[in-house]
C-alpha cells in the first residue's frame, strides 16, 4: 500500500489562465451542534448571530459561521481566537447545552479563484453551482468526497476537504485547472 504523506504547505497548487487554486493557511475550525432554543445564548457567547437557514452564513471579527443543518454549524476562526470561542461556549454550557467540537485538523481549505472557478467545480460537484448564491455555502460532494463549499464571490470559492481525501480532490483540481486553460 502506498502511504500518502502530503505536506500541505500553504500556497499556490495550480495556476492557469483560467483560474488559480491555492491552499490556505491552517485555521481554527469547530463543529457546533445545538437545539434551536439555545441559539440566542450561543450567539451571544460566540459574538455572531447564528443563522438558522441552511446555507446561510454570518461573520464577525475573525469568526465565520455556516449553517449546515437545522442543528449544525461549521465555525471558522483565527487560531488566536479559537480558545476564546471555546471558553465562551463552555461558560454557558449549563444553561445552553450544546456540543462544540474542535475539528481544526480535520480539513484543509483550498481557494479556487478565476473566471472559470465555477466550471472547475462542475468537474466533481453534482450541484448546480449557479444556484449557490454569493456569500452562501453548503455541504456537498466533490468527486465522491464530502466537502464544504463556500462561495465568496462570483468567481471565488473555498473548499473545505477532509485531510485524507485532499490528495485525491486536489489532484482533480490540478488536472481541471490545466484542462480548462487548454480550451
Amino acid at each position: 500500500m502506498t502511504a500518502l504523506t502530503p505536506a500541505f504547505i500553504p500556497g499556490p497548487l495550480a495556476k492557469s489562465s483560467a483560474l488559480v487554486v491555492s491552499l490556505l493557511a491552517p485555521t481554527g475550525r469547530f463543529s457546533l451542534r445545538a437545539h434551536a432554543a439555545v441559539l440566542p445564548a450561543l450567539s451571544r457567547a460566540i459574538g455572531v448571530d447564528l443563522p438558522s437557514r441552511i446555507g446561510a452564513r454570518a461573520s464577525a471579527g475573525t469568526i465565520e459561521v455556516l449553517c449546515l443543518s437545522p442543528d449544525e454549524w461549521q465555525i471558522l476562526v483565527a487560531e488566536t481566537d479559537a480558545l476564546r470561542l471555546s471558553k465562551g461556549c463552555a461558560s454557558i454550557y449549563a444553561e445552553a447545552p450544546h456540543s462544540l467540537t474542535e475539528i481544526s485538523d480535520r480539513e484543509i481549505t483550498v481557494r479556487i479563484e478565476g473566471p472559470k472557478a465555477a466550471d472547475l467545480l462542475t468537474l466533481g460537484c453534482p450541484r448546480d453551482i449557479g444556484r449557490l448564491g454569493e456569500g452562501e455555502g453548503c455541504r456537498t460532494l466533490m468527486d465522491g468526497a464530502t466537502v464544504v463549499l463556500w462561495r465568496d464571490g462570483k468567481d471565488s470559492f473555498r473548499l473545505d476537504i477532509w485531510r485524507s481525501f485532499a490528495p485525491h480532490v486536489v489532484a482533480l483540481l490540478e488536472t481541471g485547472c490545466a484542462e480548462l486553460a487548454a480550451e
Partner: peptide, 18 residues
Amino acid sequence: MLLVHCPYCEETLPELEF
C-alpha cells in the same frame, strides 16, 4: 440522475448527495 427535494434544505438537489 434523479433530483430529490430535501424538506430541510428546501432545495431540489442531485441524487448523488442522498
